[in-house]
């Protein structure tokens, strides 16, 4: 299981070195990075999580994807704390024998991570602060799997 939950930033290239598959077992690697998006009125994005549950929830999502696609390896890194505009929030990397499995598995992991992993985002703006509400499409994204 390769799930990391941390406050500090991460380096995609260094994380990919931890991913199995580059020794000949994988034919495809997909990596995805989620970023803090917004305009100048966004001062910070605060990410709260449920430490006792977060790693377990992410590992369950990882295990479901491994079983469904026969993946070579998965690595998920998710940050918490106060992030600035443009900063990296999280990444997922997947290695698989073939391209389509890698794309689909990464998409699946992201869909479940968005609404099944215990993270909550709060936007700190110039004029107000507000908790981010989920996009209604997020739940539909899960149903399609």
């Amino acid at each position: 299981m390769a799930v990391v939950v941390q406050e500090k930033d991460f380096d995609l290239a260094a994380e990919l070195k931890e991913l199995a598959g580059f020794e000949g077992t994988a034919g495809a690697v997909i990596s995805f990075i989620g970023l803090v998006r917004g305009d100048a009125s966004l001062l910070a994005l605060e990410l709260e999580h449920y430490p006792a549950m977060t790693t377990k929830a992410l590992e369950e999502i990882e295990q479901m994807a491994r079983t469904k696609w026969g993946l070579v390896d998965v690595r998920i890194v998710h940050r918490f704390g106060r992030l600035q505009l443009g900063e990296q929030i999280m990444m997922v990397a997947v290695s698989a024998p073939h391209r389509r499995a890698a794309f689909e598995a990464a998409d699946y992991i992201m869909d479940f991570l968005k609404s099944r992993a215990p993270f909550w985002k709060k936007e700190h703006g110039i004029s107000n602060n507000k908790w981010v509400t989920p996009n209604p499409d997020d739940e539909e994204a899960i149903i399609r799997w």
Binding site: G34, H49, Y50, H78, I89, M90, M110, L113, K114, S115, R116, A117, P118, F119, W120, K121, W131, V132, T133, P134
Partner: peptide, 8 residues
């Protein structure tokens, strides 16, 4: 207890 999750 918590609101709907918004990770990723």
């Amino acid at each position: 207890f918590f609101p709907p999750m918004t990770g990723g």
